[in-house]
Simulated assay, not measured.
Amino acid sequence: MGARISHSSWEKLFQLGESQEETDQAYAKMLETAMEIRVELGLTQAMLAEKSGLTSSMISKMESGNNHPTMKTFLKYLRGLEIDWALMQKK
């Protein structure tokens, strides 16, 4: 099967994005963007697992909203997508 995002993942992202917690909303938006990039690149979760050093299971749990990863794990996910993960700049 090709790269896709499941309906249940979209539902959980929507719910997280509707949270009153600003951090939940930000995480939902970041994950949504990363998942869309994964699909645009034509990467399955298994392919991303190989590139990122994470397991397919971890990626599935992250994308389904069943796991809130550590920052280190999320950065590995982003690196697998070759996303610039520089979040802060010293002024």
Rank of each mutant, 00 (worst) to 15 (best):
F74C: 01
T44Q: 03
E18C: 15
S19C: 01
K51H: 08
L78G: 13
T33K: 14
Q25Y: 01
M47L: 11
E18W: 00
K12N: 10
N66K: 09
L41C: 10
E32H: 09
Q45N: 14
Q25F: 00
I37F: 06
M71N: 06
M47R: 15
A46E: 15
L54H: 04
T33I: 05
V39D: 14
Y77H: 03
Y27E: 00
T44I: 05
L81E: 03
Q45V: 06
S60I: 02
K51C: 06
G42E: 11
L54S: 01
S57W: 11
D24L: 01
M35P: 05
D24A: 07
L78Q: 13
L43P: 12
D24Y: 00
K29V: 03
T33M: 03
L13G: 01
H68R: 14
T70K: 11
T33L: 12
I37W: 04
L78K: 11
L75I: 12
L31C: 05
S19E: 00
S19F: 01
M62C: 12
G80E: 10
R79P: 02
E36F: 05
M71F: 13
L13R: 12
A46M: 06
G42W: 06
Q15R: 12
A46F: 05
A46K: 15
E32A: 14
M62T: 11
Q25A: 03
T70H: 09
M35Q: 13
T33F: 05
K51R: 15
T33H: 10
L16M: 15
M62H: 07
T55D: 10
M30W: 02
H68A: 04
P69T: 04
K72N: 10
R79Q: 14
S60N: 15
G17S: 10
D24H: 10
K51W: 05
E63G: 02
A28S: 06
K29F: 03
E50F: 07
G53K: 09
E11S: 02
L41P: 02
Y77R: 08
M62Q: 09
Y77N: 02
S60M: 07
Y77M: 06
M47Y: 04
S57L: 06
L75Y: 12
M30L: 13
L41D: 10
G65C: 04
K72Q: 14
P69F: 03
R38V: 04
E82F: 07
A49T: 07
I59R: 12
L78D: 09
I37G: 07
Y27L: 08
M30D: 13
T44M: 02
P69C: 01
S19K: 00
E36M: 13
L78N: 10
L31D: 00
A46L: 08
